[in-house]
Computed example of a mutant assay.
Amino acid sequence: ILDALPDGVVVINAADQVICVNPAAERILGRSAEEILGRSRRAVVGPTGDPLLAGVLEGRTRGRVEREVTTLDGSVRHIAYTSAPLPAGCELQVLTDRTVASRLRQQVNRLDTLAALGEMAAGVAHEIRNPLNGIDGFAALLGRELVSEGRNEDVSRYAARIRRGVSEINAIVSNLLGFAAPQGLQNGRVDLHHLLSSVCAEAQEFAPKDVSIHFHSEAGVASEVEGDTVKLRVVFLNLIRNAVEAVHEDGTVQVDLEADHGKLIIRVRDDGPGLAPAMRLKLFRPFSTTKAQGTGLGLAIAHKVCALHGGTIEHEESEHGCTFRVELPAAIEEANE
Score class of each variant (00 low, 15 high):
1 I>N: 09
4 A>G: 08
6 P>T: 07
8 G>Q: 08
12 I>Y: 04
14 A>N: 00
15 A>K: 11
15 A>E: 14
15 A>Q: 14
16 D>T: 01
19 I>L: 01
20 C>K: 10
24 A>N: 00
27 R>G: 06
31 R>I: 01
31 R>F: 02
35 E>C: 06
40 S>Q: 11
41 R>L: 08
47 P>R: 02
49 G>D: 03
62 R>T: 12
64 R>G: 05
65 V>M: 07
69 V>Q: 00
75 S>Q: 15
77 R>V: 00
80 A>D: 07
82 T>I: 13
82 T>E: 14
83 S>D: 12
85 P>C: 05
87 P>L: 01
88 A>F: 12
90 C>Q: 15
94 V>F: 10
97 D>F: 04
98 R>C: 09
100 V>N: 05
107 Q>R: 14
111 L>F: 08
116 A>N: 08
117 L>F: 13
119 E>H: 10
119 E>Q: 12
119 E>F: 09
120 M>I: 10
121 A>E: 03
123 G>V: 08
124 V>P: 01
125 A>N: 10
126 H>T: 13
132 L>Q: 04
133 N>F: 15
137 G>H: 15
138 F>M: 15
139 A>E: 08
141 L>N: 12
142 L>C: 13
143 G>L: 13
144 R>G: 15
145 E>R: 12
152 N>R: 03
152 N>P: 00
159 A>I: 06
166 V>Q: 05
170 N>R: 13
174 S>E: 14
181 A>F: 06
182 P>N: 07
183 Q>K: 11
185 L>I: 02
187 N>E: 13
192 L>F: 09
193 H>W: 11
194 H>Y: 12
199 V>K: 02
200 C>E: 08
206 F>M: 09
208 P>S: 08
212 S>R: 14
213 I>N: 04
219 A>Y: 10
228 D>T: 05
230 V>N: 07
231 K>G: 02
232 L>V: 10
233 R>E: 12
234 V>F: 14
235 V>Q: 04
235 V>S: 02
237 L>N: 14
238 N>W: 04
244 V>Y: 06
247 V>Y: 13
250 D>Y: 11
251 G>H: 12
252 T>G: 04
258 E>D: 07
259 A>W: 01
260 D>A: 11
262 G>A: 06
263 K>C: 08
264 L>C: 05
268 V>F: 08
269 R>I: 03
270 D>N: 13
272 G>D: 05
273 P>F: 07
277 P>S: 00
278 A>H: 00
279 M>S: 03
280 R>P: 01
281 L>T: 06
285 R>T: 13
289 T>F: 09
291 K>C: 04
291 K>G: 07
291 K>D: 13
292 A>F: 10
294 G>V: 05
294 G>M: 07
295 T>K: 15
300 A>Y: 04
302 A>G: 05
304 K>E: 15
307 A>N: 02
308 L>W: 02
309 H>Q: 10
309 H>K: 10
310 G>C: 09
311 G>A: 01
314 E>C: 04
315 H>E: 11
318 S>L: 03
318 S>N: 11
318 S>P: 01
319 E>I: 07
321 G>H: 08
321 G>E: 06
322 C>E: 07
322 C>V: 06
333 E>I: 11
333 E>C: 02
336 N>P: 00
337 E>D: 14
